[in-house]
Simulated assay, not measured.
Amino acid sequence: MDPSVIPALTAVISAIVGGAAGEVGKNAWTSLTGLVRRRFGDDAVAAIETAQTPEQTAQSLVERAQADPGFAETLTSWTAETARLVQIKHDVTNTISGDARITGPVLQAGDVFGSINFGKSS
């Protein structure tokens, strides 16, 4: 599976699980679980449904895709189509202005998947 698909897959799953995609997201989840069920069976569906985070769900899917090129192609297509449908946008504007006085680290970001660490904590 092309590694560049993984962040989009994670973002799509996050939007679906977080409810941001509404009814389209519910339909997309049904579609995804159907793809997994047809290819790998009910146990595989249970594995993605019980994942604790969208990142874990995506990782489980990526592992299956790495072992099955046909599924990788299907998952890549599903991700692209679903991202379009749920209209995931990455337009982010961050501004520090005026009399702002910065005395420590600053992070300006859009979607963040995973931990952010600025170094040792005191």
Results as ranks from 00 to 15, higher is better:
residue 1 M to I: 09
residue 2 D to H: 08
residue 3 P to D: 11
residue 4 S to K: 12
residue 5 V to L: 11
residue 5 V to C: 08
residue 6 I to C: 05
residue 6 I to Y: 07
residue 9 L to E: 02
residue 13 I to V: 14
residue 16 I to W: 00
residue 18 G to N: 09
residue 18 G to T: 03
residue 20 A to T: 08
residue 21 A to D: 03
residue 21 A to R: 04
residue 22 G to E: 14
residue 22 G to T: 09
residue 23 E to I: 13
residue 23 E to T: 09
residue 24 V to Q: 09
residue 27 N to Y: 05
residue 29 W to I: 00
residue 30 T to G: 13
residue 32 L to K: 00
residue 33 T to R: 10
residue 33 T to V: 15
residue 33 T to N: 12
residue 35 L to C: 03
residue 35 L to K: 04
residue 35 L to D: 09
residue 35 L to S: 03
residue 38 R to G: 08
residue 38 R to L: 06
residue 39 R to H: 09
residue 41 G to Q: 02
residue 41 G to M: 12
residue 42 D to K: 15
residue 48 I to H: 03
residue 48 I to S: 03
residue 52 Q to W: 02
residue 53 T to S: 15
residue 54 P to S: 08
residue 54 P to Q: 08
residue 55 E to C: 00
residue 56 Q to L: 09
residue 56 Q to R: 10
residue 58 A to C: 11
residue 58 A to R: 01
residue 58 A to K: 03
residue 59 Q to V: 03
residue 60 S to Q: 12
residue 63 E to M: 10
residue 67 A to L: 13
residue 68 D to I: 05
residue 68 D to F: 02
residue 69 P to Y: 08
residue 72 A to S: 13
residue 72 A to W: 03
residue 75 L to V: 06
residue 75 L to H: 02
residue 77 S to H: 10
residue 77 S to N: 10
residue 79 T to S: 06
residue 81 E to S: 07
residue 82 T to D: 00
residue 83 A to N: 14
residue 83 A to I: 06
residue 84 R to V: 02
residue 86 V to L: 02
residue 87 Q to I: 07
residue 87 Q to D: 15
residue 88 I to T: 12
residue 89 K to M: 08
residue 90 H to K: 13
residue 91 D to A: 11
residue 91 D to K: 11
residue 91 D to N: 14
residue 92 V to D: 13
residue 93 T to P: 01
residue 94 N to T: 13
residue 95 T to N: 11
residue 97 S to I: 05
residue 101 R to C: 01
residue 101 R to W: 05
residue 107 L to H: 05
residue 110 G to S: 09
residue 110 G to N: 10
residue 111 D to H: 13
residue 111 D to L: 14
residue 114 G to L: 08
residue 114 G to T: 07
residue 114 G to P: 01
residue 118 F to Q: 13
